[in-house]
Amino acid sequence: MSRPLRTVPARLLALAMAAVTLTACSQAPAAQETRQAAAPQPGFPVTVENCGRELTFDQPPSKVVTGYHPSLETLLALGLGDRIAGRTFFGESAFLPGQKEQYDRIPQISETIMLPQKEVMLAQSADFVLDNAMASFDAAGGYATVEELDAAGSPVYILGGWCSPEEVLRFTIDDTFTDLRNLGKIFGVPDQAEKLVGELQAQLADVKKRVEGRTPVKVLATDGGKGPVNAYGGSGITQQMIALAGGENVLKDVKGDYTEVSVEKVSASQPEAVLVSDYATLRGEDMPSSPAKAEEAFAIAKNSPAAKDKRYLALPVAAQHPGYRNILAVTDIARFLHPDAFAQ
């Protein structure tokens, strides 16, 4: 699953992936020779699988470049901010507590949420690249490909396995835990990763206990539009977050994740609550605010309980892309849908 001054909208990164394929490749000999020359470290080498490729590390990365927001905040959550040498722009995005200060200290290498163009990217000499979509590795867009970065000793890891449109639809919350454990191995901090996984699993268990037995709230998840409507169907991250939070996606029978849905379909869906993708960074004529998008939804589903109650939640779009924030968002959505369950 977007960014500043007129670039590909973060939530639409999944659509951009349709034009990009990830070719299986192994780490470049040059990168391997560099690592073999380094002094061996306890617990290394480690090998993880990502996007059908095996990535082997003889030592923890120390010069990391991160892409869109969820990739940066996932590393920060693991306490790895000091390893990040460059990051993309997402300005006034919805930062988690304490992360904006860390974001400000990391050098910015791109004026958009996308990684920089090929020459600039290769010049970073990164020893690890973390992102959550394939759009920033599209040669047709002037970006360095996964293969080119790999050959330069900058192996790429894609969060959530969002390596193809099909894999976007197959994403499960468990993929987030796999990512955290893999990153823990790669950076030599498996205990930190396991601790974070345990905390997040406990949050999910708490939400499940609180909403269990309650009538699911009918939810429309939308990114705006007066016709057709940009909305979220029955596959992918948003669908799962709604279900885990005690909701029922009114478009669960619609194939796909982020997709276009007819006005008639939305009008007949009768949601009791609306989730609106919130792009805090981009605002303008082509990027309406969350309240404006909510009003669009209410106008289409005008006789619905959600419209009558003006009931909506602005959900940071970063939470709708792979990253550890997915689990935090489940709690936020559950509190919105079932406030009484969190009253105690």
Results as ranks from 00 to 15, higher is better:
Thr259Asn: 13
Pro45Ser: 12
Pro60Lys: 02
Gln32Pro: 06
Ala301Gln: 11
Val156Ala: 10
Phe298His: 01
Gly234Ser: 01
Lys252Thr: 08
Asp206Met: 10
Ile158Arg: 07
Glu166Gly: 08
Gly160Tyr: 04
Glu33Phe: 13
Arg311Thr: 00
Ser2Met: 13
Gln59Met: 13
Ala94Asn: 06
Leu200Ser: 04
Lys195Thr: 12
Pro9His: 11
Asp286Val: 14
Phe128Gly: 06
Gln32Gly: 02
Pro29Ala: 15
Thr145Ala: 07
Ala280Tyr: 07
Ala243Asn: 07
Leu282Phe: 12
Gly142Ile: 12
Ala297Thr: 02
Leu275Phe: 07
Leu80Arg: 05
Glu285Met: 10
Leu220Asn: 06
Gln108Val: 11
Phe137Arg: 07
Glu167Ser: 08
Glu212Arg: 08
Ala299Ser: 12
Asp82Cys: 03
Pro228Arg: 01
Gln59Pro: 04
Glu295Ser: 00
Cys25Trp: 05
Val156His: 13
Gly142Lys: 10
Val156Asn: 12
Lys100Asp: 12
Thr23Cys: 00
Ile300His: 01
Gly224Leu: 09
Ala273Trp: 04
Glu272Lys: 06
Phe187Asn: 05
Arg210Tyr: 11
Ala292His: 08
Gln203Leu: 11
Arg325Gly: 09
Met287Trp: 05
Phe342Gln: 14
Lys209Asp: 08
Lys218Val: 01
Ala318Thr: 13
Ser154Trp: 06
Ala221Ser: 08
Met121Asp: 14
Arg170Gly: 07
Ala273Val: 11
Gly246Gln: 03
Pro40Phe: 07
Pro70Trp: 03
Ser277Met: 15
Val207Gln: 01
Ala28Tyr: 02
Gly247Trp: 05
His321Ser: 15
Gly52Ser: 06
Tyr258Met: 11
Leu282Gln: 12
Ala301Gly: 11
Thr238Gly: 00
Arg53Gln: 14
Pro165Gly: 06
Phe298Ser: 03
Ala268Trp: 00
Lys302Glu: 07
Phe57Ala: 02
Leu78Cys: 05
Ile158Leu: 12
Tyr68Val: 14
Thr222Asp: 10
Gly188Thr: 05
Gly86Ala: 09
Pro42Ala: 15
Val229Ile: 09
Thr259Met: 09
Asp138Gly: 02
Ala307Val: 05
Glu119Trp: 00
Thr47Arg: 08
Thr56His: 12
Glu166Asp: 13
Gln41Lys: 11
Thr331Asp: 08
Lys100Phe: 09
Pro70Lys: 05
Ser235Val: 03
Ala139Tyr: 14
Glu296Ile: 00
Leu13Gly: 12
Pro40Val: 05
Arg325Trp: 12
Leu55Gly: 01
Pro116Thr: 15
Glu167Cys: 02
Gln320Ser: 10
Ile300Lys: 04
Pro4Asp: 13
Val266Gln: 03
Gly81Asn: 15
Thr56Arg: 14
Asp253Gly: 13
Asp179Asn: 11
Phe57Thr: 00
Phe90Ala: 02
Gln99Glu: 15
Asp58Arg: 03
